[in-house]
Write a protein that binds this DNA or RNA. Sequence first.
DNA 1: AAACGCATGTAACATGTTACATGATTAG
DNA 2: CTAATCATGTAACATGTTACATGCGTTT
Lengths: 170, 170
Amino acid sequence: MSLRHAVLGMLDEAPASGYDLLRRFEQAMSNVWAATQSQLYGELGKLEKAGLIRVHAEGPRGRKEYEITEEGRVELRHWLVEVKPNRSPRNEVLLRVYFLGSVSPDKAKEFIEYMGENSREREERLTELEASIDWGDDNAAQYGRLVLEWGKRFSAMSREWSEWAVKQID
Amino acid sequence: MSLRHAVLGMLDEAPASGYDLLRRFEQAMSNVWAATQSQLYGELGKLEKAGLIRVHAEGPRGRKEYEITEEGRVELRHWLVEVKPNRSPRNEVLLRVYFLGSVSPDKAKEFIEYMGENSREREERLTELEASIDWGDDNAAQYGRLVLEWGKRFSAMSREWSEWAVKQID
DNA sequence: AAACGCATGTAACATGTTACATGATTAG
DNA sequence: CTAATCATGTAACATGTTACATGCGTTT
C-alpha cells in the first residue's frame, strides 16, 4: 500500500488536487514511484472515505484540493519508520540479462550496451535536473536532494557495470 | 508480462516442474524477480494453453515436468532483445526517504542507517553466494555471474550512499 | 505411524494498466 | 473561436498476494 503513503507524504507538505499530485508522480516522483491517473483518483477517494485526507478547498472545473488530516499524519509517520519495507524486487532488465544465454553473444552485447546507453542518459537527465532545481533550504527539499543523489549514483553504477559486462561476454 | 518470460527462460535451460521453478524463484531468482506459488501455477496453465510450453514427463505425486516448445523459444528470443523494457520503477525504501522530512532528524538518520545495514547484509550474502557456487563454464552460467556482480555493485552503492546520506542530515 | 517435503491447485482480494468518457477554463 | 490544458471520473482487464485445500511419497 505504498501509493497511499506517497499521497499522504505529498499532502503532508502542502494541500493539492489529484491533478497536482499526478504532475508530481510524472515528474519528480517518477524515478521512485509510479501512479496512473486512474489509480490516483481511486486512491484519493479511498483515503477520503478512510478519513486520512479531506477536501479543503474547491476550485474551478470541479477541482478538489485535499489536505491531510491528523489521522493521516499519524498513519504516515507510522509507515515511514515503523513498518518494515517488504516489496519484492523486480528488475525486468536484469531478468533479461539472466537469460541472454538464449541469444547470440552479439545480440547479448548489443542489449547490454543499450542498457549502458540508458544509464548514461538517465545520469545526464538527473545532473541537468539537479542544476535546474532551485533548492530552497527547507526541510523537505533536503531529502529530495538525497533521493536525487541516490539516482545519480545508481545510474553511474549501472553504466559502469554495463561497460564491464560487455567485456565479459565471450 | 515478465513472469511469463522468466518461466520460458528457465525452461529454455532445462525442463522443470512448477515445484522446481518455484525453488528457483525463491533462491537464485529472488534478487531479480519474485513469484508466488499461486501465480506460478496459474501462469504455467496459461503458457501450456497458449502452446508455448508442453508437459514433457509426469512423475510421482502428480508432478508435471514442462518443456519449452519451439513457439515458446521464438517468443522468448523476441522478448529478450526486441521488446522495449517498460516497467516503471518502484522503490519503496527510496519513497520513504523522500518523505523523511515528516519525522524528526533522529528518526530519519535511524532509518537511513537501517538501510545501510540492509545493504551491508545483502553485500555479504552475495559474496558468500558467489564463493559457494560452482560455476560451470557453460554459457548460461556466464550471465548468472553478470547478474550477481550487478547485485554486488548495487549493494555497495547503496551502502556508500547511506553512509554519505546520514552525514547530510541536519 | 508420524513428520516432513513434494506437488498441485482454487478463491478472494489488492494493486496496477489501458481505454473510454466528459466537460470547464484559459491562452492565443 | 479554437486548441491546449485543467480536471475528474468509470470500466474492463492484467498482475500479484494471501489464505485455504488436498494428497502422495519418503524418511525417521
